[in-house]
Computed example of a mutant assay.
Amino acid sequence: MTTSLPPPSPAARVIIVTGLSGAGKSTALKGFEDMGYEAVDNLPLSLLERLVGEAAPGVRKPLAVGIDIRTRDFDVSRLLAAVDTLRTHPDLDVDLLFLDADEHVLARRFTETRRRHPIGGDLPLTDGILLERQMLSMLRDRADAVIDTSRLPVADLRGLLEKQFGTEANPGMSVVVMSFGFRNGLPREADLVFDVRFLRNPHYIDALRPQTGQSADVGAYIAADPALAGFLDSLKTLIGPLLPRYEEEGKSYLTIAIGCTGGKHRSVYVAEQLFHWLSTLGRRPTLRHRDMPGTLTASAADVHHPAAGC
């Protein structure tokens, strides 16, 4: 008589949330709580492994833990060592999330809330921000996912967290396709950046200027550029083989950024073409137009593909 073994319990999800002060960690933890996570903020490092191991395997809720510079025994090397230790447990799925933002945005947030920077002391606010960035640079480099909240509305941040860390099963590497404008700065979280400013610019056509890369007219104008088709083919030829290799190396999150001058026309159109193509490969990418607030897209079915050229 053959006895079938029960299927193994799914690994418990643990997200360590850290980053620069003022970058939105508290907002992110509230978002995780809304997604069904148990959220714990400002946890001493000495208690991290005990907290994670308290619940029995198979019955524990997903857990989001906020640890940052305010923590009494905070130390970057100790935190990284603790994360590495947790990852040795086969029943845990551990990710390190780092929240970032531009210095001037962080300074404005502290000024508006009249809060003191936690490590500023008698230093000017900007010096405290720069000092913290320097202290946490190794932590940012080791993070599984980096989210820059500088131009990210709260609703879009929560939507992005839900796409990347939602409790529904989402096997494979999480891929984010982002459009942006170079005049507003490079996206800090980008792993791959492609410049499409060589394409004809709809901004100089009066009828197209107020529209975006999501409109049919703008899409048709960009698709008519003879340089587009070859570029898209080359982009797919480059990115296609990279995705499984990144997964083999254990990468959980990949952000592909497409940039033009203002982040409204060419980069939006090309990002949507790339998003659509990735979706045909069976991927479940997330699409985000950084410099067009409120346009976080959840699935390929939600995206309009004007004059699709791929």
Rank of each mutant, 00 (worst) to 15 (best):
Q211S: 09
L235S: 03
R142S: 15
A298N: 10
V14P: 12
T295L: 06
A28I: 12
E38H: 13
L242A: 06
L192Q: 02
D84L: 08
D73K: 03
T149H: 12
R200S: 15
F110N: 06
F165K: 08
R13D: 10
F98K: 04
V94D: 09
A23T: 02
F194K: 01
A12D: 07
S21Y: 02
A82S: 15
L160A: 09
H104M: 13
T212E: 09
L186N: 01
N184P: 03
A56T: 08
G294W: 02
S279G: 14
G31F: 13
D156V: 11
V94K: 13
A11G: 10
R50S: 10
K163I: 08
P57H: 12
L136I: 01
R209T: 10
Y221S: 01
G22W: 05
N201G: 00
G282Q: 07
R151P: 00
G22A: 07
A227K: 15
L97R: 01
G262D: 00
L106R: 03
T167N: 13
P124V: 08
R60Y: 00
T113R: 09
H104S: 14
H276T: 06
S179C: 07
F198I: 02
G309P: 00
R13H: 14
E168F: 05
S150M: 12
D95A: 15
L86C: 01
Q164I: 04
M35E: 14
F194I: 04
H104Q: 14
S77G: 00
E248V: 13
L287G: 12
P7D: 07
G22N: 08
G159R: 08
A64D: 09
M178L: 15
G263W: 06
T167D: 09
P241K: 04
H89M: 13
H203A: 05
S267I: 05
A257W: 05
P187K: 04
L92C: 05
H265I: 09
W277I: 08
E189N: 05
F165S: 13
N170C: 10
S150N: 06
I119Q: 06
N184M: 15
G294Q: 10
I239T: 01
G185R: 03
P187G: 07
